[in-house]
Amino acid sequence: MPLSGRTPSANPRNRNPRAYDWTTVENAAYEGHSPELPAKGGRQRWHRETRAWWEAVRAMPHCRLWTDTDWRFALETAVLVEAFWRDQPSVAAELRLRSAKLGLTHEDRLKLRIRYADPQDGDQVAAQAPAAVTRLDERRRRLAGDDAP
């Protein structure tokens, strides 16, 4: 059973260093090498929803980070998607867990600490400086009408 909890905070309260940081990926469809769905035996074909799912998965921007084992995991997940669309709802729980590991939804990518950046922005998303903070004593002085430092 999966553990529940909050997603990682941008401002952690403890002083321990993070084990890993955000991975920024260019927000452009992946067009590199990806495996095809394997041929099925006989006259049976993949369900059209499974084929649509596979085309969406193999074009996700963060697929450029995947290794051969990640692609194998995705292919094995495609078999569960096929079973789900062929009226086997008992695979839904496993399918949900595997979808989270693949980072299929925005929430899943947040938990995996993957974010997309527009191509023109490059790595600037990761390098953004925090907004300037106004000191409270200066604000209190202005509100009190005392302009002298």
Rank of each mutant, 00 (worst) to 15 (best):
P38H: 04
D147N: 12
D147V: 07
A100Y: 04
L102W: 04
E49H: 10
G41N: 07
L136N: 09
H47K: 00
W53K: 01
D68Y: 13
A144M: 07
A28M: 13
L110Q: 10
D121V: 15
D146M: 11
E138Q: 12
Y20N: 09
V25F: 04
L102G: 02
G122S: 01
W46Q: 03
T105M: 02
A52Y: 06
T69L: 09
R72W: 08
I114A: 04
S99R: 08
H106K: 12
P2A: 04
K111G: 03
T50E: 09
L112C: 07
R109C: 04
V25Q: 03
K101N: 09
E36G: 04
T67C: 10
R142P: 00
S9Y: 10
G32K: 06
W46A: 03
R45A: 15
A131Q: 14
V133H: 08
L104R: 10
D147P: 15
S4K: 09
G5Y: 13
Q128S: 07
L104S: 02
V91H: 00
T77A: 01
L37R: 02
R141C: 01
V79H: 04
R18L: 14
P149T: 06
L110F: 05
R43S: 14
R86H: 06
W53V: 00
R72E: 15
R142K: 12
V57P: 00
A74P: 05
D118L: 15
D21I: 03
L112P: 02
S4E: 15
E138R: 13
G5V: 08
A78F: 01
L65D: 03
N11G: 11
P2W: 00
A83M: 15
D147K: 11
F84R: 12
H47R: 10
L80W: 02
R58A: 01
M1C: 11
A39Q: 04
L3K: 13
L102Q: 00
S9A: 15
R141L: 03
D137Y: 08
D137T: 03
W85L: 00
R113P: 02
P2H: 06
R15W: 07
T105P: 00
V79E: 14
W85G: 01
R96F: 10
A10Y: 05
Q120S: 13
D118N: 10
W71L: 05
A126L: 07
T69A: 12
D146P: 03
A10N: 12
N14Y: 07
W22Q: 02
F84C: 07
P12F: 05
T77I: 01
P149I: 05
T105K: 02
D70Y: 04
K111A: 10
G42T: 07
R72L: 15
R15D: 09
T24Y: 14
C63V: 15
E76D: 11
N27R: 09
G103Q: 05
K40L: 15
R48E: 11
N14I: 09
L110R: 07
L136I: 06
L3N: 12
R18M: 14
G103V: 01
Q44N: 10
T7H: 14
A126P: 02
